[in-house]
Amino acid sequence: MSKVLVLYYSSYGHVEALANAMAEGARSTGATVDVKRVPETAPEEVAKAAHFKLDQQAPVATVEDLANYDAIIVGTPTRFGRISSQMASFLDQAGGLWMRGALNGKVGGAFTSTGTQHGGQEVTLFSVIINLLHFGMTIVGLPYSHQGQMTVDEIVGGSPYGATTIAGTKGQRQPSAIELEGARYQGELTAKTANKLFG
């Protein structure tokens, strides 16, 4: 079976919750799955003053870790319609992996969180996906076979480009059952794809 990395950055725990659901879905296929986070780049006093969730259990990844996996699913909150600076900084350090083609042919995917329904989810997903395509990876999104993302009965995230959640402008909304199911679905599909290629 394949080895899957769920790599994320989360300030307040919303992307962390999606990351854990993504890992559940991937593990359901028999894949070996690790959940890791990228380093916090904000000064500690700034992070504490902003009430960042600093007690996350996932270990901190190194750039070289990426080469050890068959699939990498990347999660980041949206920052004004783009990837967070913490995740961007981490991926920017992967030039050595890119130079030697260490990620060519691996499977990748993206997931995100925004404060509002129209806060740039799809643009953020694409900003991750563009990075992964430059690394030579094959992208797996969240197809409409995950029917939950098509509901109009409640506020719900989700996009064909990846799982998402809507946190609320004050972070007051946690990922819903449908959003977590979307993350599990994408994780399962990504791992199944990697299992076919590498298993």
Rank of each mutant, 00 (worst) to 15 (best):
residue 185 Y to I: 00
residue 2 S to N: 14
residue 109 G to P: 09
residue 74 V to L: 04
residue 178 I to R: 13
residue 198 F to T: 06
residue 4 V to F: 06
residue 110 A to K: 05
residue 21 A to H: 02
residue 143 P to E: 10
residue 68 N to Q: 15
residue 47 A to F: 07
residue 141 G to W: 11
residue 77 P to R: 10
residue 172 Q to E: 15
residue 195 N to G: 06
residue 152 V to S: 14
residue 21 A to N: 02
residue 49 A to T: 14
residue 145 S to G: 08
residue 196 K to F: 07
residue 75 G to H: 12
residue 69 Y to T: 06
residue 2 S to L: 04
residue 175 P to R: 12
residue 103 L to Q: 13
residue 101 G to M: 06
residue 7 L to V: 11
residue 104 N to L: 03
residue 8 Y to S: 01
residue 2 S to M: 12
residue 10 S to D: 09
residue 106 K to Q: 10
residue 102 A to V: 11
residue 122 E to Y: 07
residue 144 Y to Q: 12
residue 46 V to G: 01
residue 78 T to N: 08
residue 178 I to Y: 08
residue 116 T to I: 14
residue 45 E to P: 00
residue 161 Y to H: 12
residue 132 L to R: 01
residue 102 A to Y: 01
residue 14 H to Y: 05
residue 84 S to M: 12
residue 138 T to W: 00
residue 102 A to P: 03
residue 186 Q to V: 11
residue 157 G to Q: 03
residue 178 I to G: 02
residue 41 T to N: 08
residue 183 A to V: 07
residue 51 H to Y: 12
residue 146 H to D: 13
residue 79 R to Y: 14
residue 93 Q to H: 07
residue 58 A to K: 09
residue 6 V to P: 01
residue 1 M to E: 07
residue 117 Q to C: 01
residue 81 G to M: 04
residue 120 G to V: 06
residue 65 D to R: 03
residue 176 S to Y: 03
residue 35 V to Q: 12
residue 46 V to Y: 08
residue 176 S to G: 15
residue 143 P to D: 10
residue 111 F to S: 10
residue 121 Q to Y: 00
residue 95 G to C: 04
residue 86 Q to N: 13
residue 55 D to C: 08
residue 18 L to D: 12
residue 54 L to R: 10
residue 17 A to P: 00
residue 111 F to K: 10
residue 107 V to M: 05
residue 44 E to T: 15
residue 143 P to T: 05
residue 100 R to T: 14
residue 110 A to G: 06
residue 45 E to A: 10
residue 73 I to S: 04
residue 59 P to W: 06
residue 196 K to N: 14
residue 14 H to M: 10
residue 11 S to T: 13
residue 124 T to K: 01
residue 198 F to K: 04
residue 21 A to D: 04
residue 34 D to N: 14
residue 93 Q to N: 11
residue 105 G to E: 09
residue 5 L to G: 03
residue 53 K to C: 06
residue 4 V to E: 05
residue 71 A to I: 05
residue 159 S to G: 08
residue 199 G to W: 08
residue 147 Q to K: 15
residue 115 G to R: 13
residue 133 L to G: 01
residue 78 T to H: 04
residue 49 A to M: 14
residue 162 G to V: 03
residue 147 Q to F: 09
